[in-house]
Design a protein around this nucleic acid. Structure first.
Lengths: 139, 139
DNA sequence: CTGAATCCTTCAGGATACTG
DNA sequence: CAGTATCCTGAAGGATTCAG
């Protein structure tokens, strides 16, 4: 984020920047899914891989590393054979998780409203497009 | 999102999917910035363009359209010359905004902790890497 | 079982120029 | 002022394979 000296009148930007930081940890297509899945307790690698359904092994690993790096996940290796690795949320991440559920809650409550809005927006756009066709008779 | 019949034991996935939907509206690099900026009241196009600082005209337009389509923003065109267009949050989006601020708050509180975690993670990785070098003497 | 490495495709997003 | 159109690049992410 560009930082600079923020001489723009609105300090809105000051609030927006940390937001961008949040997203860096959370916005990944899978990050939230992982956090939610790991919130219930220690989870193994393959458990995650199956419960998220659609994630590739690569992406799971990448996101796991990222979240671990940010101090949101704890990775516990049991030096057994076969290997066993468990992931769990740090306190910090558990707190984040509560905020996340608020967001999820919001999404669920307004899901249909959003779908409606999209539908009407799209039909309106389609109608307008048809209009244009009328105004442009075959060359 | 794949939907299917969710025969996996964890229903975690059921909670995770709407989350993914939230992100689709919010996760864009700029979406949240726009929502925060527009939360204060009706904002004009160029105001947004300047207050966000770093966004391209194209991305601003794209995100604006997306948010409008999802019923989060209202676009009001004043048929004057020069043109004047104002954007404001819908009630639904205002509610979302409150949740967002919770997230922002979290980010601010833990920003340093996250930075620390990253630093130690990275140094640890570096140390380990050096270790490997020792174990692999020149061919 | 838990990854790391590699290759390849897609697309979000930036720069720029044009229009009503 | 408020966009739209076009071109282009980097990075995200999927598939597959190798390894401890």
């Amino acid at each position: 984020m560009s930082r600079r000296h923020t001489n723009v009148s609105e300090q809105v930007i000051n609030e927006a920047c940390p937001v961008t930081e949040v997203l860096d940890h959370v916005a990944g297509k899978w990050s939230i899914g992982i956090l939610v899945a790991a919130a219930l307790g220690p989870v193994r690698f393959t458990e995650l891989e199956r419960s998220i359904e659609g994630i590739s092994r690569r992406m799971l690993t990448l996101n796991l590393r990222k979240l671990e790096r940010d101090g949101l996940l704890v990775r516990t290796v049991h030096p057994t054979v076969p290997p066993k690795v468990e992931y769990s949320l740090t306190p910090m991440a558990q707190e984040l998780h509560t905020y996340l559920t608020g967001l999820v809650d919001w999404a669920q409550r307004h899901r249909t409203a959003i779908a409606d809005a999209r539908a009407s927006y799209d039909t309106a756009a389609a109608a307008k497009s048809a209009d244009c066709q009328n105004q442009q008779p075959g060359r």
